[in-house]
Amino acid sequence: MSDRKLPRLLQSPAVLLLLVWMLIPLGMTLYFSFIRYVLNSLRRPEWTSPSLSNWRGFGNYEFVLKSKDFLFAIQNSLFIVCSILILTVILGVLIAVLINKTFPGQGIVRVLLISPFFVMPAVNAVLWINMILDPVLGLQGIAIGSINDLIDGLRAAPGVGWFFSLWPELEPISFRATQTSAYAVIIMVTWQWTPFAVLIFMTSLQSEDQQQKEAAVLDGASPWSQFRFLTLPHLARPIAIVVMIQAIFHLSLYAEIEIVSRGTGNKNLPYLIGEFANNNIGAASATGIFAVILANIVAFFLLRMIGKTLME
């Protein structure tokens, strides 16, 4: 008995599951984005259940576009993602080139370097914002406090006191404040994802053409031009992949933003959706559709850029 049809059928459970997972909630989001729908309303109780009679057309979209947080959330989302991408790629290339040659303890250094990548985002955020970045009790606060103490001591010292009495008192930075909380998120995510970039670039560097390099050395090429004209072009593809994967993950950053400042001054699109969803489902859904559109624009360019290389 031939069962040649069976193999194709084996794809269907996965495809069906993903299709349902994608279409049903997204369809509902689309529907809710066109109606008036709130969770609590004493004045208009009819809006508290989804119904076509509450049709609002593009009203929710208009409302969202006009809300003061929306444009900022998009700007902030892109700011956070782009900053992380630039930092991780630059640091990743530098570190990968640095540790690519054999040296004593290379294996241990690799293990030390990769560890942050496996720390769960919630722990990452709690650890950084409290134990490290806290302006009073964290390492930052303690370090700045002790520098100030030292300077205080030097002020009273004979001979150098005149110099240090005009020295400024250092102020610790509060990373839970309005704009700085975005920096805190960028720092912690960069710490977590640079190892990922390093790992991928290192894997790629191991397949670099060594003969070409030797020829370049013979021709008297400087280390810089070797890096610029051989290594960097070789890394083009892994860089594109690192950018794509990180863009996917970081456009939906949530836990870090929630933990650092509960979104104060630092909302991104997912966070704004979460806030609307506390009551105004129509607005949350319209924002969700905007987020889908933004993700699709990014995905379109990125997949174009590297889709072909993935398929080879």
Partner: peptide
Amino acid sequence: TKDVLMWMLSTKMLPAAAVLYPMTFL
């Protein structure tokens, strides 16, 4: 097959927050 694979990858790019409320509701 190739298109299906690419489509599957694209479901990863769907922002989770966009379907937060429907998921909670359902």
